[in-house]
Amino acid sequence: MPRGLFVFTLLYGGMTVLAGVLAFKQVQLWPSELAVESGIFAFLWLVVISSTIAQLYGKALAQRLVWWGFLPLAISASLIALVLALPPSTEMVEFRSEDLAAFERVLGQTPRIMLAGPAAYIVSLLLNIWIFDRLRGSGEATTIGLMIRGALASALSQAVDSLIFVTLAFYGEFDISDLLIGQVIAKVTLSVLLVPFLITGGVKAARWLDRR
């Protein structure tokens, strides 16, 4: 197994778990008024890693990685459910009740959000890989071409990700128009500004690891 593939696969599994935890906080994209859930930062790494693997090791392997990403998701969700169900210690209840409440609030997400996340994950990442590969063409990949393909694939897939997640998680609870528009604009902006450089860096890093 190429060392670059091994390292990036480990990183991928970690990012699938971390994205759901970070998503609890929304951050402002300075200097605009746009806000985005922080899980996007881990999710963009999933985009970068899957695109890097598609570029170097093939689309089929990248797609399998996305499907296998459900394994750490399922295990982490099961462990979170177990820990939430277990009774807290008397010491924590008596002296650290605020910490306990914060822990349960962050990890005790509603079932709709728990289902919306994986649905958006599988559709958007498979779409990203498909677009990234389709734009490849038959010629030798250049750095500029790689950056453009990465930006376009990420921007389109992130727009779809926002549409799926926000609709499944919050439709019917409140008017989701503003949230949906803000999320799409914010995620597309981050995709265009960050992903091209992260993908080129990821490809170079994987090649360096493989040579080692």
Rank of each mutant, 00 (worst) to 15 (best):
P2Y: 14
R3Y: 11
L5Y: 15
F8R: 01
T9R: 07
L10T: 12
L10W: 14
Y12E: 09
G13P: 02
G14H: 00
G14M: 00
T16V: 15
V17Y: 06
L18Q: 08
L18M: 14
A19G: 03
A23T: 14
F24A: 09
F24C: 04
Q28H: 06
W30M: 12
P31T: 09
P31D: 13
S32M: 07
L34N: 08
L34Y: 11
L34Q: 05
W45C: 04
V47G: 11
V48C: 09
S50G: 05
I53Q: 04
G58E: 12
K59A: 13
A62G: 06
R64T: 14
R64A: 08
L65G: 04
V66C: 03
G69V: 05
L71G: 12
A74D: 03
A74G: 13
S78H: 06
S78E: 11
L79I: 14
I80V: 15
V83F: 10
V83C: 05
L84F: 07
A85W: 15
L86R: 10
P87W: 14
T90Y: 05
T90E: 13
S97A: 08
L100C: 06
A102C: 09
A102F: 14
F103E: 04
V106E: 14
Q109R: 12
Q109Y: 01
R112F: 13
I113D: 02
L115I: 12
A116D: 10
G117V: 10
P118Y: 00
A119T: 09
A120S: 15
Y121P: 02
Y121N: 01
I122S: 06
L125Y: 00
L126T: 10
L127G: 02
N128A: 07
N128W: 01
I129G: 08
W130T: 15
W130R: 13
F132N: 10
L135Y: 07
R136T: 14
G137T: 05
S138V: 01
S138I: 03
T142P: 11
G145F: 11
G145Q: 12
L146H: 03
M147N: 02
M147G: 04
I148P: 03
I148H: 05
A151I: 11
A153S: 13
S154Y: 08
S154C: 15
Q158N: 15
A159N: 03
D161Y: 07
S162V: 02
S162I: 00
S162P: 02
F165R: 01
G172H: 02
G172I: 04
E173R: 13
E173S: 14
D175N: 09
D175S: 07
L180F: 07
L180G: 09
I181E: 00
G182P: 11
G182A: 08
Q183Y: 06
Q183W: 05
Q183P: 06
Q183L: 11
V184P: 00
I185R: 02
T189W: 14
L193T: 15
L194M: 13
V195I: 15
P196Q: 07
F197S: 14
L198F: 13
I199P: 08
T200H: 09
T200A: 13
G202S: 07
G202K: 03
A205D: 12
W208S: 10
D210L: 04
D210E: 09
D210F: 04
